[in-house]
Nucleic acid binder design. Structure first.
Lengths: 195, 195, 195, 195
DNA sequence: CATGAATGAGTTTTCATTCAT
DNA sequence: TATGAATGAAAACTCATTCAT
C-alpha cells in the first residue's frame, strides 16, 4: 500500500526469483535453464523477471555474487583467530559442512558448474573473497609449523576439492552426509595437510 | 583410393568431430555449445555432423562413453596387483596424473560438468567401470589394515575430489602441474587415507 | 481490455492460424507447406504458431479433426430420418454441395490429399464419424428395396468418389458448380445406386 | 561391354529409378519423398539419380508423363470404335480396371495426389491425352441418344471420380477389388449416365 | 560411369526479450 | 507494476544437389 510495503513486496519478489533461479541453475546449469522455467518456479510471469534483472546473465551474476559473499561470510564470521591451527581447521570444516547443510543448492550451483564464460568483471573478482582468508589461515598455520610447507593454493585445492567431491558423492547418492561422515572426512583431511 | 583409405578418411573425420566436440563441451558444457560451433572447430559443415551422429546428444554420449572407458583403462592396465597398498596408491595417483597430462580436455569434460540430464542408459551404467576397481583396491587395502576403515565411497570421494580440485586449480592458473606438485599431493592424500 | 477480450483475441488468432494452414495445406499438401508460409498467411511470426500448437503435425491433425467433425455434422444435422430413401439421398447430396460451396478449401484439404502418414490416433479414428451415418442410410434404404443390394462401402465409394470427382473438375475449371450441374449429378447418382 | 549393352544397362537403371520413385511417390507424395529414399529403393547411390534426371522435379514429371501416356494408351488401343455405346462403356471400364490391377501404384500416383504445383508445361498439357478420347466417346454416345445430354466433362467427372473412389476404398481396405465388385460398379455407373 | 561423403540452404523448433494491455 | 502473448534471431536438424574419388 505505502512505499514501504511496496519496497518489501519488490524485495520479496526479487528473492523469489533468485531462489527459483538458484534451484534451476543448480540442477541444469545456466545454459540448460530457460527464463520461462525460472519464472514459473518463482510464480511470476516471464516478463516480470526483466523488471528486476537486465537479463538472464544478470540473474546468474547476481546469484553468483550473492552466494559467494554469503559463503565467504559464513566461513569467516567469528572465526577463532587466536585458536591453534588444528582447532581452526576443524572450525573451518565445520562451517563448510554447516553451510552445505543449510544451503545445499547454493553449493551445487557455485561448485558443481563452470561459470567463467558468462561471469562479469565483478563476479570474476569476487573469488578472492573466499580464497584470501583461506590463504591467510594456511600461511599462519605454516608459520607455526602445523601444516606442511607446500604452496597454499595446492593445499586449498586439495581440501576444497575433497569437500566438493564429498558434496558430489552425496548428490549422487553414493554417501550420506551425517556427522560421522563429515567428522571422518575432516580427520582425514587434517592428516593430509598437517606437518 | 580404395575402400581402405575411404574408411580411414571417415574414421578420421569422426575423430575430428569428436575432438572438436570435446574441446567445446569441456569449455562451455553441453548446452553452451552449438552444433555449428563444433562443426567449425572440426573443419566441416554443420550438416556433416549428422552423417556421423544422430544428434547432438548422441555426440555427447559417444564422448562420455569413450573417455570414461579410456580413463578406466588407463587406471587399470598393468595395475600392480600384488604390490603393497602404499605402492598401489602411488601407482594409481601417477596414472591419474599421467592421464590428466595426456588428456586434459577429457578430464575437464568428464569431471567438471554435470552430465546426468542428457546421458543415455549406456552412459549412465558406465560409471561403475571406474568405480569398481577403485573400490576393490580400497577393500583390499583395508583388509591389510593399510587404510582407514571408512566407507570406501567416502575415501574415493575425498581422493577423487581432491584430484579434481587440483585439476581445476591448474586450469584456473592457481597452481602449476609439475612432478613436485603432484608428488606432494599424492603424499598428502596417502596421509589422508592411510591408517 | 479484460480477460474476456484477451481470450477472444487468442481464440481469434488460433482461428487465423488454422484458416491460413487450411489454405496452404489444401493447395500444396502437408509436406509442401512450410511453417513460415502458414505464419505469413496468418499474419503472425513463425514462433507464434508454437504458442498455439505443439508442432506442424499438431496443426494438421487439429485441422483434420475439426473439418471432419464439421463435415459430419453438416451431413447429419436435421437429417430427415423418416423420409423415403429418394428424399434422403437428395437431402444428403444437397448437404454435400452446400458444404462444398461454404467450405471449398476444407473439402480440398480433406478429400484431395492422402493424410494417413501424419495423422494421429484421434484423427484416424474420426473417419467413422462420417462413414457411420452413410452406412446407416444405405442399410435402411436397402431394407426398403430402394437401393441395390451391393456392399454399402462400394456404394459409398462410388457416390463419394463421384462427388470428389466433381469437386476436382470444378477446381480445375472443367465444369462450373451451379444448381443445374449438381442437380443433374444427383439425379445420375441416384440412378446409379437405386434398385 | 559394347555400346548396346551399355545402353541397355542404362535404360534398365533408369527404369529401376522410375519404378522406385513411383512406389515412393504413390505412397507419400512428392514432398514427402526424399531423393535418398528413392535411390535406396532403386538400389543405386543418390548421386546416380542425377546422371539420369536433372532433379527431383524432373523425375516426377517424367513419371507423370510416362504413366499418363501409358494410361491413355491402355484405354484407347483397340477400342471397339464401331460397337454400341453400352458395349463401349463396358470396354472402357474394363480397361480402367485391368490397368488398375496391372499398375496399381501408377494409378495411386496419378490419381490420389495433387500434382499441379510441380508439373512442367509438358506434363500439364498431357491431360488432354486421356480426356480427349473420353469426350469423343461421350459425344458419339450422346448423338446416339444412349447417354444423358449433360456436359461431357460432368459425366467424366462422375465416372472417373467414382473410379478413383473405388481405388481409394480398396487402398484403405474398405472393399476388395474383384470381378464381382468391378462389374457391379460398372453396372451402377452405366445406369448413372445412360439416357 | 557410379559412388556416397560433403555441403549449405532451407526446415522445424526454441527461447530470451519486448511491449501492449 | 505485472502480465504473457508476440516476436525473431538462432538453435537443431534435413535433404536436394554436387563432386572428388
Amino acid at each position: 500500500m505505502n512505499i514501504h510495503s511496496r519496497v518489501d513486496g519488490q524485495a520479496e519478489k526479487k528473492e523469489q526469483i533468485l531462489e527459483a533461479a538458484l534451484e534451476a541453475f543448480a540442477d541444469r546449469g545456466f545454459h540448460g535453464t530457460t527464463v520461462p522455467a525460472i519464472a514459473e518456479r518463482a510464480g511470476v510471469a516471464a516478463g516480470t523477471l526483466y523488471r528486476y534483472f537486465e537479463s538472464k546473465e544478470a540473474i546468474v551474476n547476481a546469484l553468483y555474487q550473492h552466494w559467494k559473499r554469503t559463503f565467504a561470510g559464513a566461513l569467516m564470521v567469528d572465526f577463532p583467530a587466536g585458536a591453534p591451527p588444528r582447532e581452526q581447521f576443524r572450525s573451518l570444516w565445520e562451517r563448510l559442512c554447516r553451510f552445505a547443510e543449510a544451503h545445499p543448492l547454493a553449493l551445487q550451483f557455485l561448485e558443481l558448474h563452470h561459470h567463467a564464460p558468462y561471469l562479469d568483471e565483478t563476479s570474476r573478482r569476487i573469488d578472492d573473497t573466499v580464497l584470501g582468508p583461506a590463504r591467510a589461515f594456511l600461511a599462519a598455520a605454516q608459520r607455526q609449523m602445523a601444516v606442511k610447507p607446500l604452496p597454499p593454493d595446492l593445499l586449498i585445492a586439495l581440501v576444497h576439492g575433497a569437500f566438493v567431491g564429498v558434496l558430489r558423492a552425496a548428490r549422487d547418492g553414493l554417501i550420506q552426509l551425517g556427522k560421522d561422515t563429515t567428522d571422518a572426512a575432516e580427520s582425514c583431511l587434517w592428516e593430509a595437510i598437517r606437518r
